[in-house]
């Protein structure tokens, strides 16, 4: 398959490494961008020889991202689905930006997430789910199981982990325990595969902050207010 990736290098490179059986194009205007060696870097979309699947891994809702999605949709065939990172913006909202909402599928994409054997996707509200088989088949080709969840910011695992990380950061900020104690506690007492602060660092504080903030804004519940220290970690990353 021909795959076309857009978005932050930290996420795109994970995907390109895993998709080495496919032809991977990475579209970016930045000619100096650091890429995995099995990716073909393109600075114009007409250099892509017919993409079968499109990916956009940007996390936040920016005008630049909206413009990029419009460009991807206008420059590619109508039958090609566009998998968009919906960890901090719902698939429904992303679909509402575009002229072809039926092409949008939400996906959970963050650094390190691809280590799992399952990939979460979410269809926009009211979607006809036309591309279901094609996406499942593609994920299976890279050794990943597709898990479909209903469309909400954070999907399942990123939401769950970001809330644990937010609590761990609050515990750190309040001086309840130091970083070493937090990490040892959660791995030794409840067998977490890694400490929550290590997870936050690996995924990226700015991503964790973006997800918690989005949950706060979208769900309107004070339980999702980001820890003040989390914001600082994101700003100084």
């Amino acid at each position: 398959m021909n795959l076309l990736f857009t978005g932050p290098a930290a996420i795109v490179n994970d995907w390109v490494s895993l998709c080495d059986e496919h032809r991977c194009y990475v579209y970016s205007r930045d000619a100096k961008r650091h890429l995995s060696k099995n990716a073909l870097h393109v600075t114009h979309l007409d250099e892509v020889d017919g993409a079968d699947l499109l990916f956009n891994f940007h996390v936040a809702a920016t005008e630049k991202r909206q413009a990029l999605l419009a460009e991807l949709i206008a420059s590619t065939k109508n039958s090609v689905p566009l998998l968009c990172n919906s960890v901090a913006v719902s698939a429904t909202e992303i679909a509402s930006w575009t002229a072809k909402p039926e092409r949008i599928i939400g996906i959970a994409a963050l650094p390190t997430l691809l280590a799992a054997e399952a990939v979460e996707i979410a269809y926009p509200h009211g979607s006809a789910r036309r591309h279901h088989e094609a996406v499942a088949e593609f994920l299976s080709s890279i050794g990943r199981r597709m898990e479909v969840v209903n469309d909400e910011v954070g999907l399942v695992y990123p939401r769950l982990m970001c809330m644990i990380v937010n609590e761990a950061v609050l515990v750190l900020q309040q001086g309840v325990a130091n970083e070493d104690a937090i990490e040892k506690s959660m791995t030794l007492a409840v067998n977490y595969p890694q400490g929550p602060l290590a997870w936050g660092k690996a995924v990226g504080w700015k991503h964790v902050y973006a997800i918690v903030k989005a949950l706060h804004e979208q769900l309107g519940d004070d339980r999702y207010r980001p820890a003040p220290l989390l914001r600082k970690l994101a700003l100084t990353e």
């Binding site: 898990e147 969840v149 644990i164 506690s185």
Partner: peptide, 29 residues
């Protein structure tokens, strides 16, 4: 750990249960 409710583990582990229950309530999955 400082003498605060739930100390470290019972406090940080809380979202593992609570957020999962919240997602179930919201029918995320």
């Amino acid at each position: 750990a400082k003498d605060t409710p739930g100390f470290i583990v019972n406090r940080i582990a809380r979202p593992f249960y609570n957020e999962a229950l919240r997602m179930l309530e919201e029918n995320v999955a």
